[in-house]
Design a protein around this nucleic acid. Sequence first.
DNA 1: AAATATACTTAACAGTGTTAAGTTTTGTGT
DNA 2: ACACAAAACTTAACACTGTTAAGTATATTT
Lengths: 208, 208
Amino acid sequence: MVTKTRKTNRKEELRDLILDAALKVFVEEGLEHLSIRRIAEIIGYSPTTIYLYFNDKNHLLFELCELGFLRMAEINNNLSAIQNPLKRLHRMGENYIKFGMEHPAYYDLMFNQAGPMERLATMDNSEWDSGDKALAQLKEIIVECIEQGMIRKGDIDVIAMAVWGTVHGLISLRVCKRFDKLVDASEVVQTMHRSLEWLIQSVNITEK
Amino acid sequence: MVTKTRKTNRKEELRDLILDAALKVFVEEGLEHLSIRRIAEIIGYSPTTIYLYFNDKNHLLFELCELGFLRMAEINNNLSAIQNPLKRLHRMGENYIKFGMEHPAYYDLMFNQAGPMERLATMDNSEWDSGDKALAQLKEIIVECIEQGMIRKGDIDVIAMAVWGTVHGLISLRVCKRFDKLVDASEVVQTMHRSLEWLIQSVNITEK
DNA sequence: AAATATACTTAACAGTGTTAAGTTTTGTGT
DNA sequence: ACACAAAACTTAACACTGTTAAGTATATTT
């Protein structure tokens, strides 16, 4: 059984090599340059070899998404230290913005591109676990905010989507190159943070 | 000079024919099926003819965007009748949602796709007039809300981006097929409207 | 009627994702 | 060590994509 394990590891190794190469390309050259042939060129294999490890390009893109969600979870490691749930919510938003600014290609793939979701639709269990998990974390914090009387009572699903929508909308506009066209380029990030701040203040019912 | 005018009209006619065909394809078959060759096939011309009327595909996509903004302006014709600026803001958001739900392909093209903005970047006057105009309308309403003491004072740019971000974020998630994965399909539209309602209520400082 | 400008097409280039069929390498059992 | 089988990988091709240079009709002007 040792051999089998070793074999499996080998297979996993090349699979990871493919994902690494894909990551390198779409981060450094953009998603539009991420082609099966480009990846093959980098790893020194034939293009068709990639199809031995992924059903199709969408499958590969979906797996890249999953890696993106892992990185996003990492960036949220600083949340548990914050006691005040509303401040935690604020920080989560800031983390989100930070992630979007540092990894625009990842963000685009995770939330805008069609490919990954098309892959999901073909799967047996077509639940979007990564998205659900991220949203669940957001909901948890919002529930705490309501319980501690910091946010007005209301449907958790509705509030969560509104909050997520705001932050996502801002980053999405930025990633899709719309934000820069509307706000002075030097003030984009600042405006995003201040918009988030404005939202948090607006929903805060403890002061005022 | 009559001939020249007639000729110009002819040229415009074919140009419109191309745009009509493009519209038909990307609305009925999706943006991924919108190819130069497909358009050519529909209008009964050779693919290269299209390049006599548009610099490249991005140019064509950009013009389609412009048409989209026209339709969006139409849908906002019901705003002037509403006296209360906060209610007008609310309605504008609802119009936005309505547009996104009725014309997802348009919405995707106008706010998510890279093509149109790449075209814009190549133009002499690379201002995004359509976007600016839409945002200006939003800002006007927000200014009124502040003047009438319905929204807390603050930087107009910041508030406008926050409000726009929220609505855009919700529609964007829907258009990019993320919303349905997180909220029960039958409740998506309702959740969007309730999220908008929640935002409007949260920023309203007249009651409570 | 000849010259010119306009409108359009043909053929090709360099890419893309993907597949069927063939080859080489590796591992297993005797 | 050798034969067999399974795994890993490649070649060649198909059907697409956007785009361009060069060529051909058609219409207009002189």
